[in-house]
Design a protein around this nucleic acid. Structure first.
Length: 669
RNA sequence: GCCGACCUGGCGCAAUUGGUAGCGCAUCGCACUUGUAAUGCGAGGGUUAGGGGUUCGAGUCCCCUGGUCGGCUCCA
């Protein structure tokens, strides 16, 4: 008689499969690329035993889940390697992140680059030894005994089930589990870590597509009042080739870094003498900035904005009314005390006034609004200013042009009625997207930042928040763009939409923000007279397209990798004569271009022609016009483009027309 | 702000255990006058971010200040 094992039915990747009861993922999936599975929506190890009726999907190593598992497993191996070398190291957390993983350690001395090399070697040994990751369910009490030497893990056990934030890779809401790393030869557990999993079946599957990238420090559980742990970052990929490709992407990003291009192309600098985060724009950067600003002004003018100007400093009172001083004093430059008189004993005989550098333009625009009684007929009122503001950003956050202490916002404030709020928001969003496209960004999505229910920091009535949020949501939805919710991300005074742009290499940058504000109209007691003669409070919309001109400049530099389209390029055309004799001919052409407003120069230097071509190629000039005897005889010129391609014998008039057209149409060449 | 690393002519980099600062590009001068990414020769330029200390001697070691970079925290 045949022994009958009981069998069960499960669904595997959509089809029903009969397996013997007690079967695990290794039975269901034989392909090596499947490293884990989803059982009824939950990620599980392949060693998990399935039950009748389970809905099971295989998780491939190259899928988003699979990559996370790979990287999380790599983090464990890193931690094991660290503790092998330094048994005193205490474990923090070690989650997967975009492109890689990290692990935090409490160690006496911080890690050095040499340590990383040694750790990579140690990781390779662990990976090659083929340790198995074995999940083991434990209890609070048992885990506390086992992990008594790991204070941070003990803290996580205590937090289990509560709001964990960063620790969620270690302990989940369900069972408490420990992963044992078991040596396949001896069967001994050589290392273990508190972890909710899942993991790869075996360390060998991490392969050789990983690298340790940098050391840093990070506050325990992300709180700056906690101790700083030493963090090691790594990257991990299914194959060595994918690791290479990732490293090449990083190199490409480094080549585009605006801080480097700013020096190479002589666009801007941060002289130490001026102070951190305070940029100067050199002539080449200056002309680009002027072109950017001029075009923005023109478009704003066409779209019904009024241009206003406001000073850079103000008495403290203004920022007390606006609330900035109470909420953001830390982020403002300290006050300048004026007109105070003190006697020889140090007693104040005349009270002075504190002046502050402005951190925002809004209060100034509000005062302009308030300078006269307003009627519903005046609204919407749109005030625009390139307003330079100063913020005392913490020294550690400064970064090139993208995070600075002095910045110029392309700032506008729109004063609208409740009734025309929706129309105005729709128009603003359309305006913003259209203008960003003209600067060459065209891949967008939107983020809707809303208030956090019950958090008292958000001011204003529920009703107006609900209306405003619904309006923004509708406007965002009507745009047809992808909308990502950002709950709790609103400013304290109102919800906002932000436009996120993807650049040429797929990175996203937060660009424009459109923010509703119910708070400042209240604080400044703004009103307008309605058609029935009653007073109503206007709603304010804050919006900036560039965010700051500096930041936008930096983003465009990286987007274009310094290959600015002709309309923005600091030098648009360079004439290169084959020999001195043809210089005059090129000067004649250049004069015509210059007359048409083109930024053109002729390279009369002693350098050889080849050298000139090299120089201007490296300076990323969009058009080179080369002329020698053949061209001069034919009344023609030869184009050379940035990519090295060329077109010879173009009649001068055609060449000029082409250049003018490219500039006019803002195309890239 | 915190942790760590770093700061050498305009730019990119060198300088064995602490022993009197070199190179390339750029700049300037001279020669060459050239058909698509570096012509040759010569010259000038740095009290090694600033200050203090240790030492017979400091670019190298220590301290302070400033700045930069990588993260963390923050970003109206």
């Amino acid at each position: 008689m045949r022994f009958r094992v009981s069998s069960i039915n499960v669904s595997v990747d959509g089809s029903s499969v009969e397996v013997e009861s007690g079967a695990d993922g290794f039975k269901l999936f034989t392909e090596r690329s499947i490293v884990a599975m989803r059982v009824n929506g939950e990620l599980r190890d392949l060693a998990h035993k399935v039950s009748a009726g389970d809905l099971i999907e295989g998780v491939a190593i190259s899928s988003p889940d699979g990559l996370n598992i790979l990287r999380h497993s790599a983090a464990h191996v890193l931690a094991q390697a660290v503790q092998n070398i330094n048994p005193e190291a205490k474990l923090g957390i070690g989650p997967p992140i975009k492109d890689g993983f990290y692990y935090d350690f409490d160690v006496e001395n911080s890690f050095t680059p040499e340590d990383l090399k040694a750790l990579e070697k140690a990781m390779e040994r662990i990976i090659r030894s083929g340790q198995r990751f074995i999940r083991r369910v434990t209890t609070d009490g048992e885990a506390r005994v086992e992990l008594s030497g790991e204070p941070y893990k003990l803290e996580l056990i205590g937090l289990k089930g509560s709001d964990l934030g960063e620790g969620s890779a270690e302990v989940g809401a369900g069972e408490l589990t420990i992963y044992d790393n078991v040596d396949p030869q001896s069967g001994e557990t050589v290392w273990k870590d508190l972890c909710r999993g899942p993991h790869l079946p075996n360390t060998r599957m991490i392969g050789n597509g990983f690298a340790l990238t940098r050391v840093a420090s990070a506050y325990w559980r992300g709180n700056e009042n906690n101790k700083q742990l030493q963090r090691i970052y790594g990257t991990a990929w299914p194959t060595k080739d994918e690791l290479r490709a990732h490293q090449e992407r990083l190199e490409e990003a480094a080549r585009r870094d605006h801080r480097r291009l700013g020096v190479d192309l002589d666009l801007f600098s941060f002289p130490e003498e001026i102070g951190s985060g305070l940029a100067v724009f050199h002539p080449k950067g200056g002309i680009m900035r002027r072109v950017m600003e001029d075009y923005s002004r023109k478009r704003h003018e066409e779209s019904g904005y009024d241009f206003v100007y406001s000073p850079h400093i103000s008495k403290s009172n203004l920022f007390e009314i606006s609330g900035h001083l109470q909420t953001y004093a830390d982020g403002m430059f300290p006050p300048i005390r004026m007109d105070e008189e003190v006697d020889e004993h140090g007693n104040v005989t005349k009270v002075g006034q504190d002046y502050y550098l402005k951190p925002m333009n809004c209060p100034f625009h509000i005062l302009i609004y308030r300078s006269q009684p307003r009627s519903y007929r005046d609204l919407p009122l749109r005030m625009f200013e390139f307003g330079t503001v100063y913020r005392n950003e913490k020294s550690g956050v400064l970064h090139g042009l993208t995070r600075v202490r002095g910045l110029t916002q392309d700032d506008a404030h729109l004063f609208v009625t409740q009734e025309n709020m929706e129309q105005e928001l729709t128009d603003v969003l359309g305006f913003v997207l259209g203008l960003l496209k003209d600067y060459g960004l065209n891949d967008f999505y939107l983020e809707l930042s809303t208030r956090e229910e019950g958090n008292p920091k958000f001011v204003g009535s529920d009703e107006i928040w609900n209306t405003a949020t619904a309006t923004l949501e509708k406007v965002a939805a009507d745009s047809g763009l992808e909308l990502v919710p950002d709950p709790g991300g609103a400013a304290f005074y109102g919800p906002k939409i932000s436009v996120q742009a993807r650049d040429a290499i797929g990175r996203t940058w937060q660009m424009s923000t459109i923010q509703l504000d119910f708070n400042l109209p209240e604080r400044f007691d703004l009103d307008y007279t309605t058609s029935d003669g009653s007073k109503q409070r206007p709603v304010m919309i804050h919006r900036a397209l560039f965010g700051s001109v500096e930041r936008f400049f930096g983003v465009l530099t990286e987007h274009y990798a310094g290959h600015f389209p002709p309309w923005l390029a600091p030098v648009q055309v360079v004439g290169v004569p084959i020999a001195d004799a043809f210089s005059e001919y090129l000067h004649h052409i250049a004069a015509q271009l210059r007359k048409a407003g083109v930024r053109v120069m002729v390279d009369d230097s002693d350098d050889r022609m080849q050298k000139k071509i090299r120089n201007h190629t490296m300076n990323k000039v969009p058009f080179m016009l080369i002329a020698g005897e053949d061209d001069q005889k034919a009344g023609a010129v030869s184009f050379r483009f940035r990519d090295g391609s060329q077109e010879n014998g173009i009649p001068v008039a055609d060449a000029i027309a082409r250049i003018l057209k490219a500039i006019e149409e803002k195309v890239q060449v």
